[in-house]
Each structure stands twice: as C-alpha cells, then as structure tokens.
C-alpha cells in the first residue's frame, strides 16, 4: 500500500511512493540513493543517521518518511556547494583529521551544523555536551571537537 509523498531533499523536490512504515533513513538511502546517511543502531542512540528536517537536526531512523511529506530535508550530500566547494564543516573535518573510519562522520557533521546554528558561540565543553547523541568508535572525539571549533570560528568570520 503505497502513499505518495513529496519531500524536498537538498533543494530538489522528490515525489515518490512509500509504505507508511518506511523510515526516513531507508527512503533516503534506498529510494533516493543518498547513501551518505548511515545507520549504526536499532535503538536511536548512535546519531549516525542525523539529518536536518526543516532546519532541525533529527534522527532519520526515528522519523517516518511519510512524516516528511511537504518538508525540507538536508543530508550530508547537501552540505557542499554546487560548484563542489566544501562546506566549512567538511573542510574543517578534512584539515583537523576529524575522522578515521568515517562511519560516524555524516551524522557528526550534520549534528555539528545543528550545534553551530543553535549555539554559534559554543565553548569546547558545550560542543562536547551537544555531541552526546553521536557515537564515534575511532577518534576519541578530540579531533571532532577541534573540527567543529574550527568550523564555528570560520563560519563566524564569514
């Protein structure tokens, strides 16, 4: 039983048929082939699947695709500009070695953009606290915090 929804993803409107039970993360990965958004758990705890819906960082594994009918979704693929220039958060992760295996990285970056938008002057401690919903099994978080710090400073300057 498909339902027709229209979701704007990274600026492009997509009309598609989904089952009501389809999770946003599965819609993005399997129907739109936007596989940058990862799935890391079954319990809504890892943050790998973080995307923005109408500007808020949310878990795409805990949102139904059908709930996003008529809404705007931004995924990691939507961070860089059309000419290929990296978003400051991507540039900062690159320069500060903010990733190792990269599995958590899309979710980290989407959460990070949410943090910078909500708290542009966040201290390092506040950044750490705000990352409570994003797990990384590789980096030890130091360089992730450094990356977010660098991106926040860069975005404040520009």
């Amino acid at each position: 039983m498909g339902e027709t929804i229209t979701v704007t993803v990274n600026g492009t409107a997509h009309t598609a048929e989904v089952e009501p039970r389809t999770l946003l993360v599965h819609f993005l990965r399997e129907q739109l082939n936007l596989t940058g958004t990862h799935i890391g758990c079954d319990t809504s705890t890892c943050g790998c699947c973080t995307v923005h819906v109408d500007g808020d960082a949310v878990l795409s594994c805990s949102t139904l695709a059908i709930q996003c009918d008529g809404r705007e979704v931004r995924t990691v693929e939507g961070l860089q500009s059309e000419d290929g220039t990296l978003h400051p958060i991507q540039q900062a992760f690159h320069e500060n070695h903010g990733l190792q295996c990269g599995y958590c990285t899309p979710g980290m970056m989407m959460a990070a953009v949410g943090i910078i938008e909500q708290q542009p002057n966040a201290t390092d401690d506040e950044i750490r606290a705000a990352l409570e919903g994003n797990l990384c099994r590789c980096t030890g978080y130091q360089n992730i915090v450094a990356s977010i710090r660098a991106a926040a400073d860069q975005m404040a300057r520009s």
Binding site: D56, L59, S62, Q118, A130, E132
Partner: peptide
C-alpha cells in the same frame, strides 16, 4: 533528556 536530536523531536 537524550541528545539535541532527541530534544528537537
């Protein structure tokens, strides 16, 4: 509660 993502929803 939870994380910013959880508090946003």
């Amino acid at each position: 509660i939870g994380s910013p993502q959880v508090r946003n929803r």
